[in-house]
Design a protein around this nucleic acid. Sequence first.
RNA 1: GGAGGAGUCGCAUAAUGGUAUUGCAGCAGAUUGCUAAUCUGUAGCCUUUAAUCGGGCUUGUGGGUUCAAGUCCCGCCUCCUCCGCCA
Length: 429
Amino acid sequence: MLDIRFILKNVDLIKQNTRERYANVDVDKVVTLYGQLKQKRQSLEEIQRRSNQIAGRFKSADKTTRKQLKAEVVGLKQTIAVIKDEIVFVENEYTEEMLKIPNLVASDVPQGKDEYGNVPIKYIGEPTKFGFKPLDHVELGKKLDILDFEAAAKVTGSKFYFLKNEAVLLELGLIRYALELAIKHGFTPVTTPEIARDKIITASGFSPRGPESQIYSLTKGALSLIGTSEITLGGYMANAVIPEKNLPIKISGVSHCFRTEAGSGGRESKGLYRVHQFSKVELYQFVHPDKSAIVHEEMLAIEEEFYQALELPYRVLLMCKGDLGTPAYRKYDIEAWMPFIGEGGGYGEVTSASNCTDFQARRLNTKFKNRVTGKIDFVHTLNGTAVAVTRTILAILENNQQADGTVLIPEILQDYTGLQYIKPKARKF
RNA sequence: GGAGGAGUCGCAUAAUGGUAUUGCAGCAGAUUGCUAAUCUGUAGCCUUUAAUCGGGCUUGUGGGUUCAAGUCCCGCCUCCUCCGCCA
């Protein structure tokens, strides 16, 4: 959420930004509704003032005066009720539209409508070449007996999976290595709830209910499954004032993520690439506003350290205006080489790192206080993926397969998994 | 899940239905003069203003009763005690 006072002062700028980000929002409507809201609130306050005045005279009044005062206040009460209803109505409309206004963008964010507008800024490693006919990860998963999509389809439906045998060790090893990397960089590890209040989800910039929602909502209570631990990690500091000397606060969250993937049928949806549930280690930071730009680079550096240690070929993209999420001010994606994307291989998203400036903090109401000046202001928040497990397993399987049908475990993970390679094996069930 | 109790500023506390008290801490100022003490002021949000003054809202939260609600009634949240269930 942006500051309404900032919006009012910079309507043209906001409109241009909204247009360039291809956000479907009516900025004029927000301005108009806010004007109405303010006007109604002021008239309400005036009537409340009169009502309070009458109540104040009541105590010392005699019987007949009280009768008069009472008669006087009845009309006011009715008017107050009417105006209150009007305010609730306008407020709902206003909030709904207001929440759609995206964050501002950094000056170096490229123009562009969608993923094709993203700008590659770095390529590390070469796309994997094979001296034999490689298999995709779904076929590999079957031969190695480590993935089972058919059984998951029976149990839950499409886009679910069972990990089996070495894939399980690989998942746990990836999580463990990612966590140790995070801890090395000063993050406090946490495991989080995987269900959150809709309020917290909204505050993080996601919409829990509605047709385009990516979120699974529960029927019991105003609760939903989290799409990412970014939601719960941000919520950790909701309504908090952090002493400035305690910044930055760096948290690394381990959780499952649940996504409906509404409207993404067929698109790069084979196997593990796009699934309804996966494990992720997330990096999250609350920082001083002056520091967020530098910290954003640090977040990317940690992500790169991870994928370099895994020896996977990847590229880094600076995301264009049209492909940024609503809360993001600037965002990097890392895409790992995946031999079976598109025709003859391509790069597929494995991480993202976003600087959300004060956009999330304003809605989460997370502030910091300078002890000397006493100044209170919103913190900046950043989030990034340490590891999204399923896509990383996909990349390891497809890139590290050998002519003899085995898959080599990256050296860094060998201690964490207790494996050097995964061999094909007969499937008993 | 059931029964009972509680929730007031960072902490601690007060308030026969009458418009949120006091102490400590922190912060600001004054004074004294030095491992600090004393005095004064100081909650948040919205609104108004050049800035003040002023107005409104806020006792976990949302409703209700009332001229008036921390106080009475109802829903929800959180915590405590006990019971049940359970990895």
